[in-house]
Computed example of a mutant assay.
Amino acid sequence: MSYSVRQVASWAAVTVRTLHHYDRTGLLTPSTRTRAGYRLYDEADLARLQQILFYRELGFPLEEIAAILRDPQANALDHLRARQRQLSEEIARLQRLSEVAERAIEVQQTGVTLTPQERFEVFGEIGFDLSYATERQLKWADSQGQRESMARAAAYSKEDWRRIMGEAAEWRERLLAAFDAGEPSDGDAVMDLAEEHRQHISRSFTHCPPAMHLRLADEFAADPRAFALVVPPSQQRPGLADWLAKAVHANAARHDSPEDER
């Protein structure tokens, strides 16, 4: 059975012009033609076209495909191995580009306009997980607090960040000492630490009333990516995130108490 060039083009999802080009270059010459000169392809032609399209999908140039098809037993395996090496190198290159793009996106999502080296110097183990930063940006995009926080973060210099992170590290050291000492989460000392954290956010990023602090604390307890912004994984202890969340809740309740309104 024979098939017209339009039928073959339709089935193979290529253009008629492509099939004409394959014919002109000798890559795929139809077995027969009509008396009027129209190309007709048989089953063997279709099988050869399938091979051509397979190699094209792998990125082989037409000249190399022609060489393979001239002697498939002698050439195909070597060519495929070489192409596999090329593809592996290309995948590695694209992965590096993807990582560069990810870091650029991360800067945009977190609002931190430092170079990767400066970020490592200043933040150390404290990391901005891209997925969490992106989700948070999408979730709170219309929030005045989020907009203010992003604007202030973008304006900070390396020295500003060094100061902010130094304050956070000193607070974290006292927080871990209190947890390791078995201080109750609703004790005055730990509630004072929770209040310091709230004031740090207000001073450095955006006004953080107790209700907002509660939401943040609940995220710390529910999402390890969020808690890693406060305590890096290497310094975390089992139960620490829940303990801090309870301290924040206790501190918020203390602020709601009439005798604390001063």
Rank of each mutant, 00 (worst) to 15 (best):
P116R: 01
P61G: 11
N75G: 05
A104R: 14
F220P: 00
V190M: 07
I91F: 02
Q86W: 02
A178R: 00
K246N: 14
T15K: 12
R203P: 06
A47M: 15
L193M: 05
V230C: 06
P232W: 06
E183L: 07
I68S: 02
L240W: 01
A211Q: 09
A9I: 12
A74M: 09
E102K: 14
L87W: 03
L40K: 15
Y55F: 09
R24A: 12
E57I: 05
S149L: 13
H249G: 08
R172W: 11
P116T: 01
R237P: 04
V231I: 14
A153Q: 10
Q51I: 08
R174S: 00
E121A: 10
P233L: 05
R6A: 08
A252Q: 12
V112N: 07
A245S: 15
S10E: 14
P209V: 10
E135T: 07
E106D: 02
V190N: 06
R203S: 06
P30S: 13
F227C: 04
P209Y: 13
Y41T: 01
Q109R: 09
S234F: 15
P209E: 13
G111M: 08
A141E: 15
Q84S: 01
P61C: 07
A151Q: 06
Y22S: 08
S4Y: 11
T134C: 05
D42Y: 14
H249D: 10
A217T: 07
E148H: 10
L244K: 00
I65H: 00
D223A: 11
D78Q: 13
L240M: 01
D71C: 04
I52N: 01
A245M: 15
R119H: 14
R81Y: 12
Q50A: 01
S10R: 14
I68R: 03
L244A: 03
Q84P: 04
V14G: 06
E102S: 11
Y3G: 04
D186A: 00
Q95D: 07
Q51W: 05
R162P: 03
V8N: 05
A211N: 04
L94F: 00
A169N: 12
C208F: 08
R262I: 15
S143F: 04
G182M: 03
V5N: 09
T18Q: 15
G239Q: 03
M191Y: 03
D223C: 09
N75K: 09
L175C: 05
A168G: 10
G59F: 05
H79C: 07
G111N: 06
Q86R: 02
A217E: 04
Q137N: 15
E159F: 06
Q86L: 04
R103A: 01
H21V: 10
E196R: 12
S202W: 02
K246M: 11
R81G: 07
S234K: 14
A36H: 11
L53K: 14
K139T: 12
L27P: 06
A154C: 01
E196A: 08
H255G: 12
S202N: 07
D142K: 13
E135A: 08
Q73E: 12
A13K: 15
R83G: 10
Y22L: 07
R85E: 04
T34I: 03
